[in-house]
Amino acid sequence: MWKNFRIALKGNRWKWYFEGLQTTLTISLGAILVGCVIGIIVALIKYTNKKYGKLKIARRICDVYITIFRGTPVYVQMLLMWLVILVSLSDMTIAILTFGINSGAYVAEIIRGGLESIDDGQLEAGSSLGLSKLQVLWHIVLPQAIRRALPPFCNEFIALIKETSIIGTIGVMDLTKVADNIIGRTREPFAPYIIVAVMYLVVVLILTFLLRLLEKKLSRSDK
């Protein structure tokens, strides 16, 4: 058995795993950033519509977006993007955009949940001081909502990292694809997949730890 691992890591091969990991992390981070930007905008539009009855058309568009991207498999979305919509872009960009746009739909719902959990009294206090609706949203509601949305957001990020393992299908050398490649040479599938699984796990554990730290820092006002 140890022989299998030795073969799987032989020569320069151990470096490939880290190159794959780098690709996986780049896609994940890029995608979550895109997802956050889309998610926050969509959530704010839906929330503004609910609270103030404005932005009706924008809200409709957001609803359609969320329905489509949550209702279809990300694998199919990726293939469609690659084959039809974003043909002219590099594979990495397609990967980041696919997962970013997909994740945006989930992040939007997570943040909207956080926004709607904020007591109306907070909005009233803000507007009674003469702050504009936008200022109330930005300085009072959003910071509190983000704090509440952090745990489910963390889950979304972890799910996203693991989801990116399908990106090999369109030819991007991510962590999982590296394992496939090595197996193609060694004809021994067990060890590379175990190595890759452990690497995903370590990344997720580190991330969980970091987000817990952040949560702790943000919740200092609870004590």
């Binding site: 009294g121 009233e124 206090a125 507007s127 003469g130 702050l131 006002s221």
Partner: peptide
């Protein structure tokens, strides 16, 4: 909003901003 700046309001449930310190609560607006 300009008028509201000059009409102070105090609520039954206080409605302080929990994510800000007392000083920030007062100076925010």
């Amino acid at each position: 909003d300009k008028h509201r700046q000059k009409i102070g309001m105090v609520f039954q449930q206080f409605n302080l901003f929990p994510h800000l310190t007392i000083l920030q609560n007062i100076t925010l607006a």
